[in-house]
Design a protein around this nucleic acid. Structure first.
Lengths: 244, 244
DNA sequence: CAAAAGTGATAGTAATACTATTATATTTGC
DNA sequence: GCAAATATAATAGTATTACTATCACTTTTG
């Protein structure tokens, strides 16, 4: 793993500036050559996000991507073993980015309830604005996570890939959330299941909103964030002042 | 749609016998020729379930299936347009089977809370025993639903396929559950989202149990059923006697 | 300035996801 | 009982996919 470089500045201008100094850490075995290390690598990542969003992961090929970035299929294979590995890269990047926001949003927040509120917001919200400081379009990447994330682990190779550490970032996000849940109500018996339900369930609600609107209440007026905040508040005994 | 033939006998010997008289209804456009109408069709369905479970849907091909049942690839194409349509068939069958159990389990139950309890049990439990009255192995099919169901709708064609009615059965299961939720607590604002979260979330918890055990509490001692029953009880204001 | 590393172009392979055609076997309707 | 219809099997063929391998060329770097 590349170590996250946390430049903790005294006068932070905001997350956007901070993020431009921060390298999102992705498990190293996922790629052959770090796409962040070259111009071509960055263009592969940038345009793979756009192309997967456009035609879907199933129709996506390295040949088509090559055509789009004016490069060759064989060059892309020098960065990633397969399109599956590229998806693992993109999803790991996304969850590392979410994790960063979660840590940032809950850091120095004294009240555990407030921490939980903010953490749920971070993992359940729809990304609507591109940070625009990197080559990665987070709005589009968020859509890809909603539409394709499950495919990265619903394979016959999950267990071996899990051993290789390809899903650590995702699991860490869920674990952080479950710890916050545990801080709010240590008597609650299922903090991990609740956390994983919120993270994955929120992706699902976003999907339903867009495609199966008849089986969700989320839509114009209600967001998945509201639904899961309401749910969590009811499930946990939130002590009125759960100060750190 | 083929109409469900509900033989409501006066002396019901149990669900198993009833099921052997019942034809599970699958939207007709999913198949070219009804696999229930011939011996070959039934063998296609029976062994596709076993083969998908064995090698995974991604590696599954009609050629391999043909080899397994001593038939020809081209003959299988006479029943299903594509392996995607076959998956839609299997998943529709599964949800129709679950729907049937849900209706059966809640039928004539006077108390709404009891209805909810039973409905959640039906949609969240792991199938451990094969009914063994049909060619369909429900234990194995349940595993396929856990591992492959998302792939049936996470496609670029969802919207058009949804219009064709390929997902009606699933949506009906969620809607039935959300109606029961609504009966228990009509003040609750998100019955559809809660219902869809229970149905899909339970599949997810079963998956985590098997592959990412560190981010779920479900395992040896705790079942997804317990988790979601506990959650639902807390989320809803269950009036002590919500009689019909 | 030479070696190394990165990129591009081309070719080739086995498998996939089909379609089309023809032959043969089985069922059915009169 | 037999012809017609239907079902199944066998074979061949297509475009595409998901790669691997090789070689040429260009850029970087020690």
């Amino acid at each position: 793993m590349i170590v996250i470089l946390l430049y903790l500045q005294t006068n932070i201008l905001g997350m956007i500036n901070l993020l431009s100094n921060l390298k999102i850490a992705v498990p190293e075995k996922i790629f052959i050559k770090d796409p962040e290390s070259s111009d071509l690598g960055k263009r592969i990542v940038e345009h793979s996000i756009l192309l997967i969003d456009e035609i879907g992961f199933d129709s996506f090929t390295f040949k088509k991507l090559g055509a789009k970035i004016g490069s060759n299929e064989s060059s892309i294979y020098r960065y990633f073993d397969s399109k599956h590995k590229l998806l693992l890269y993109l999803t790991s990047w996304y969850w590392a980015w979410i994790e960063y926001q979660m840590v940032f949003a809950t850091h120095n927040v004294p009240d555990y309830n407030d921490q939980l509120f903010k953490a749920i917001e971070v993992v359940t919200r729809e990304i609507k604005e591109d940070v625009a400081f990197t080559h990665i379009n987070e709005v589009v990447l968020n859509r890809i996570i909603i539409n394709e994330y499950s495919k990265s682990y619903l394979t016959k190779e999950v267990d071996s890939e899990n051993k290789e550490g390809y899903f650590v970032v995702y699991k860490r996000v869920v674990k952080r959330l479950s710890e916050i849940i545990n801080n709010v109500d240590s008597d609650y018996e299922f903090p991990s299941s609740l956390a994983s339900t919120i993270v994955e369930g929120s992706l699902h609600q976003h999907f339903l909103k867009a495609h199966f609107s008849s089986i969700t209440d989320c839509g114009k007026d209600v967001t998945p964030t509201e639904f899961f905040l309401n749910l969590t508040q009811k499930v946990l005994k939130t002590t009125t002042n759960g100060t750190k």
